[in-house]
Design a protein around this nucleic acid. Sequence first.
RNA 1: GGAGAGGUGGCCGAGUGGUUGAAGGCGCACGCUUGGAAAGCGUGUAAAGGGGAAACCCUUUCAUGGGUUCGAAUCCCAUUCUCUCCGCCA
Length: 419
Amino acid sequence: MHDLKEIRKDFSTFEEALKKRLVNIDLNILKDLDIQNRDLIQKKELLEKEKKDISKSKDKSLFAKSKEISRSIDKLYEKQKKIRSDLEKILSNIPNTPHVDVPIGKNDNDNVEVTRSGEIPEFDFKPMSHYEIGEKLDMLDFDLATKTTGSRFVFVKKKLALLERAISNFMLDIHITKNGYEEISPPLLASENSMFGTGQLPKFENDQFEVKLDEGGERKFLIPTAEVILTNIVKDRIIGLNLLPMRFVASTPCFRKEAGSYGKDTKGMIRQHQFYKVEMVSIVEQTKCMEELERMTNCATGILDLLELPYRKVILCSGDMGFSAEKTYDIEVWLPSENKYREISSCSSCGTFQAVRMKTRYKNQKKETLFPGTLNGSGLAIGRTLIAVMENYQQKDGSIRIPKVLRPYMNNLEKISVN
RNA sequence: GGAGAGGUGGCCGAGUGGUUGAAGGCGCACGCUUGGAAAGCGUGUAAAGGGGAAACCCUUUCAUGGGUUCGAAUCCCAUUCUCUCCGCCA
């Protein structure tokens, strides 16, 4: 969410920045409400002062008047409350503005490749897709998932399940021991308020799985990414400078409705309602976002380097970024069966956008209270890493070689084949 | 599910109708002390909103929302969250 005070300073610049995101929002309404709001606040405060003075004076002859003032204040307050909630409604639906580094564009066609890395494997046979490999090995079972649950779920079985677990543990270990992240095993449900904090709500409710706890309390949602729960660790808090930067990592299941992607990636486990992901989150001083974004992206690509998988790094254009992001790098891994790169990680700086929503602040050196920057990135999507390993390491006989770094996590298994 | 207790500043914790934004402690910052550190001593240290070029001023805030009152952290009601005990269960 944008800080109204900041927007107010320069409406036109803000409007320009928003245009880059191709959103159509009439800022005149916002401007107008803001003026009305402040006007009402001033009137109300004037009356409050008067009332306060009477109460302090303890002059009985003025008590009746004080009561009258109370009624006027109530009226003003009702009006102001309505306007403020209108303001907040508008503000909470405005996406973050793009950082100056971000290329202007409409959609993923306008994203810009930054680097490529790794060798694209060559096969002397036609490489199979991960689901062909998996089904032949009887280690991926989509039909079974359809039977027990429904579409867009999968059973991963036997050695492939072990491989999936190995990938998760391997990534976590690297981030914890080499990259300075604190390991967290978080709740998989998030409150409505937490979902608001990171920007999933109110705008993207259709993508979320809501869970009924029949408590009558606050609504709860299955996390679409651990970003939600890890970032909200600092919700409603003022953080001491000595605690920054904070870096958290968790490996969790993620749940998404994938509304609006009907017909997309229906085959295989590229796009599921449930998938595992290792997620990194950083909370940093607001001046250090770009620095941290580079660092975090390197943590993600570092995993692919170790797994010896070919990938490229892409910077998303203004029109393709997520709601809360100010700058995003996607990392795309090579998938032989599709003969193209597919997203395996997305690292974003949200600037102060989420901090404002979460009411997270920190004290800087000058003891000023400021909103920190928040960043999140996959390090990496586990399901898609599994796919990438299967496809890039596949052998003519339908077996899969195991990347060297994963073998210690799999009893030194070198190859997955039938039986 | 049954019974009870409680939500106060960055944190802990006093405070039961009138300068209480709120004692005390911890933490933090600065200064003194020291060869340097620790300890010790001294000083300072809430947030949000509004106004102002600024100094600064004003309003609000003791879980949330209502109520009583000229006046509420303090009294009443509702909601919510947390903790303890019992039951149930991984």
